[in-house]
């Protein structure tokens, strides 16, 4: 018998005795009625989010400030161009990395800097030494201040995590309400064939491993900038 069959056999044998349902022994302060069937809608308990775009944008901005994400709403391409150029100038970017996409193509055209494209195979050292990684995304999540990226929407796995500054270009219709909405969107978009990596990025890389003091840029980007158009 294969190891797989042995383990599955042990599992089936073990499960012949039913386990008590959860929560039966909870103390009075923690007791809530058990559900008939396992719940599938978590919205009533998760942090609340308003439904209008303005409420979502306000919450995303509030979360971003807490997470030390630089979140900026931009009205149009001209404003995006202005802000990108200002950022590139302020940080002294010499080389950027990006992938092919409607917004990223525009950004790379206006910046006019040396560029590493991660569309196909690329040189890892070139990517590592880029000043910024500019990507698009699948969604923004107001509830948590997160960006959803996948290998398909954001130029592979490394682009959004290796350069020291991750710049996300998003459209306002991508700003979703909460995590349940984000997972629904991913299912709708990729249900027939998921990318090999999807990621919910929430703020720049961080650690608290030394004396529980927050330090940004532990391994991933030290900065995260989101332009929402």
């Amino acid at each position: 018998m294969s190891e797989r069959e042995q383990i599955l056999g042990r599992i089936r044998e073990a499960l012949r005795v039913a386990a008590p349902k959860p929560g039966l022994l909870s103390g009075p302060g923690q007791r809530v009625p058990a559900h008939e069937k396992r719940p599938t809608d978590f919205r009533p308990w998760l942090p609340a989010v308003g439904d209008s775009f303005d409420e979502r944008a306000a919450l995303f901005a509030k979360n971003s400030a807490e997470l030390k994400t630089d979140f900026q709403l931009v009205a149009n391409r001209n404003e995006l161009q202005e802000k990108l150029l200002a950022l590139a100038h302020a940080e002294g970017w010499k080389k950027i990395a990006t992938h092919a996409g409607e917004l990223t193509n525009y950004a790379f055209a206006v910046l006019g800097l040396a560029v590493v494209q991660t569309g196909g195979r690329y040189n890892l050292d070139e990517l590592e030494s880029s000043d910024a990684g500019i990507t698009e995304c699948d969604a923004l999540v107001a509830q948590t201040g997160s960006v959803v990226v996948t290998t398909r929407s954001a130029g592979g796995r490394a682009l959004s995590v290796l350069p020291p500054h991750h710049v996300v270009l998003a459209r306002r219709d991508q700003l979703l309400r909460d995590l349940p909405a984000a997972f629904t969107a991913l299912k709708q978009r990729y249900g027939s064939g998921y990318p090999s990596m999807m990621c919910l990025i929430t703020g720049p890389s961080r650690t608290g491993d030394i004396e529980r003091i927050l330090v940004l840029g532990a391994h991933g980007p030290k900065k995260l900038t989101i332009f929402c158009m």
């Binding site: 990621c199 990025i201 890389s205 991933g220």
Partner: peptide, 12 residues
């Protein structure tokens, strides 16, 4: 509220 990187890997 949520950790910084929640990564879902579906294959090579």
């Amino acid at each position: 509220a949520v950790s910084c990187y929640n990564t879902f890997i579906a294959g090579p």
